[in-house]
Each structure stands twice: as C-alpha cells, then as structure tokens.
Write a protein that binds this DNA or RNA. Sequence first.
DNA 1: GTAGTCAGATTGTCCAGACATATGCATTGA
DNA 2: TCAATGCATATGTCTGGACAATCTGACTAC
Lengths: 245, 245
Amino acid sequence: MTLDLSVDRSSPVPLYFQLSQQLEAAIEHGTLTPGSLLGNEIELAARLGLSRPTVRQAIQSLVDKGLLVRRRGVGTQVVHSQVKRPLELSSLYDDLETAGQRPATKVIVNTLVPASAEVAAALGVAEDSDVHRVERLRLAHGEPMAYLCNFIPPGLLDLDTAQLESTGLYRLMRSAGITLHSARQSIGARAATAAEAERLAEEEGAPLLTMQRVTFDDTGRAVEFGTHTYRPTRYSFEFQLLVRP
Amino acid sequence: MTLDLSVDRSSPVPLYFQLSQQLEAAIEHGTLTPGSLLGNEIELAARLGLSRPTVRQAIQSLVDKGLLVRRRGVGTQVVHSQVKRPLELSSLYDDLETAGQRPATKVIVNTLVPASAEVAAALGVAEDSDVHRVERLRLAHGEPMAYLCNFIPPGLLDLDTAQLESTGLYRLMRSAGITLHSARQSIGARAATAAEAERLAEEEGAPLLTMQRVTFDDTGRAVEFGTHTYRPTRYSFEFQLLVRP
DNA sequence: GTAGTCAGATTGTCCAGACATATGCATTGA
DNA sequence: TCAATGCATATGTCTGGACAATCTGACTAC
C-alpha cells in the first residue's frame, strides 16, 4: 500500500495542516484502513522532506480528533471505530442542512425585552437591561422540529428577521465577526405544556427534549443564551466524545 | 502580579506538564484573573529556564482545555467564562459521587445472552455470539434515578455483581486495564412504557431521557454498548463544549 | 519449558534558534 | 480631521538534532 503524500511549500497553508488533511482524507476514503500502522514519524518526515516536529504536529491534530492512536514503541494506528465525527459546538441549522433536511425557520418573536434574573445571570448583564429576544420555529420537510428561544446581548449584531429566517443564528454571529469559543449546555426532558404542544404540533404531556445553552466568544463573553425544545421523535443529539487523558 | 512558577528537572513528570498544572492551578485559584495577559512566551521561557517549544506545549494544553486564548500579536489571555469544566466521557456513577449524591446500584440482571443484531453491530461481534448483559438500577438518596442496560463483549473483564453494586462500570473497566478512548452517544427522549415506569417509579407515558452509548478503547475496539433511561426530574446532561477551530 | 534479559524500533520530551504573520499603537501624510 | 504607513510585539510555523521511555520479540539461562 503506497500512500502518495506531498506538500506544497509555496502554499500559504501550513505544512502540518496540508499533511493532516491528506491523512484525514486517506482515512475517510479508506486508503488507510482501520488498524493499519502509519509508518514511523522519522521515515515519514524524510519521505516528505519535512522535519519530524512538523510531521508530529500533523499527526497530533488527528490524534486530537480521535482518528489516530499513538503507542510508544509500537507506532501510530488508525482507530477501528466506524464513526469519526467529533463533537462540535454545532448549530441545529447546520446539522439539518448537512443531513440534507432543508431546514426552514419561522421567526415568531424578534424584539427587545428587559432581562429577567435568569437571562441576566446567564449573559452577565444587568437585570432589567435590554436584551434581544428571538423566538423561532425550526421546520424540516415542513414539519415542526424545534422551538428555539434565544436571548442576545445588545450591540453584538443586527438581528434582521429576514436573515434569521434564511440562515442560522451561529452563522449570523460568525459573519458579524464574533468568534465562537465554547458553550455550556444542559440537555433534559419534560412533558409538553399546552402552549408548547400547540407550537410543535404535539399533544399536551408529550415528552419533549430540552436544551439550554450559554455560548461564549473567544474573550469569554457570553454572546447567547438559548432555551430550546425539540420533538424527540424528530431529533436527538448525536455526538462523539473523547476521553481527556 | 508576580506568579511564582518553577519546574523540577529531577522529577519524572514532563516539564510542560508541570508548567501547565501550575498555570491551571493559578487560574483555578484566581491568582491569574480572567482577561489577564499571561506574559509572552519567550520571556516566560527565559524566566523558567525552559525552551520556547516546551512553554508553548504547556500553554497549548490549556488552550485545548479552553482555559486560555491565544491571539497573535496580542498575547495569551485567561478566558472570562465562569465555568471551566470541560466535556468528558463521564460515568454516571462518578457524576453522582462528585455531586455528593452517594449513588447506590442494584444489579437486576447479570448474565450471558446471545447478541441481538443491534448489539452485535454496535459491539462489532458476531450475531448470536455470547455477550454479557448487565441491567442495573441506579439510585440517589434512595430514589431511583436511572435504569442502565449494558452489553459487554466477553473476556474483557470480570463482571462481579458485588463489584458492580459498589462502583461504576467505567471504573471497573479502567481497573481491568482497559484504556477508554472515545464514545459515540445519542441523547433523546420518549414516553415511558409500563415496564419502564414501574422500574423508575414513574407513571406510564411520563417523559424519560434516553441515552445510547458505544464506548471504544484506545485500539478502537468497542468495549461497551449501553441503553440508559433517566428520570428527567432527577437528572440532566450538563457539559461544556469547545469549538473546533 | 519458563522466566528473565537484552536489543531494536518507535514515540515522548526537550532544546536553540530562524523566519513569517497578525495586531495595536504611534507617527506621518493628505 | 482622518486615513495610510511603519514599527514594536506577540504568536504561528518550521528546522535539525538529542536523549529518554516504552513496547515487542528474540535470545539466553535456569
């Protein structure tokens, strides 16, 4: 099995990144089969005309993604597991779109409201200060799938209703120059109230999947607080976790 | 603010790890306040008598944990957010114990069964081959909290009922020399069946939080497949996610 | 035959530097 | 006044090498 790897030194893309992408593609494509050894770092570095730290950096990024496993004295192997998708801070919109579900969004509420104690605490703003409140119904194949209620501190971005209906909130934030960094999530379940049931075309008392999330940007500022309810027959949270060594 | 950092070169603990632990402790302890600059890498390296790559490795590990943010041309800052706990592949038992809930476990079933198609696919074993089936009721403060049904490939570890009642499954695996690596999870919700309701002291049709998980060890072998149901009034999944740049 | 030992292979850690590139601020120019 | 330029500063990328720790497998001694 010969793997043809090469790097382009005239490209502005970092060498380690070029290499890690090629390796990832080879794993995805099946050229590198699960369990196979990758060949030792020194020989690989020599073959590509790179230094060993650069090759290590490429390999390390794939180890962090959970695609490779290194073992001292043995080598670097491709992991056996079938599913490779790592856990990401994902947006429901993107999730649906990549799943080919053609999501649609209906904005129900888009206004400024005084922050409640809970919202103020989550966003780190003063109680009763103005925050944006956005309520949206997310549909897939014309069927209601989730009801999203979000609070956003003022001044961060324009919340245009038309834009909110044509794309996701995270995508809007990113295009407004906000670098998302981390989020604190809580996933639970409860019975639907009459109002919730109505919105999601379920029956009162039907089980709902709930998610609360506070999202932080790269400076640690809270940029969004959301309370979402999902129809569990239409949506579940799927992700892969890695153990922190 | 002078931060007293030092490394012990005679220790077998890697230097970058010593440094990252000290920095993490300083952040945890509040000596390094959120938003404060860490000081540039070169000066830090000189102060500690380390090389810059070593200092970078220490800092990088904290960036990966979400405690620090680097910005080119600016410096490295401590993140503002309050909550630092990263997402981990957690065990319910450990979760409860660290929350001071004194978990108890009652083993309902502990036997060998032929693998169903679903179990065989999840564990990567032949259909109808023998696998362990363990069903447990997890209680906190004497109240039922979750019903855990797990399948484990044979030959990996002793499944002693007494041990299963006194500790968690993950802890048993670790002490059997299995290195947990990653898990594929799916979290959803549904209405309780009559049997489930009975086991969890809920009513039929009550909403339940469900989790399915396949856990892999460091070679990519599936070591456990579990189907869990939680009482949503007693338990929810809480974690922090990081954005992959 | 079994256990202990040793050598080879491979990754882990660490070093000392070089150049590239993005950021923020002060200075300069229109 | 305001925009463009330039500079200092910091992190990002990369090199080439050194020694240590660990795993595997083969060999040796009992």
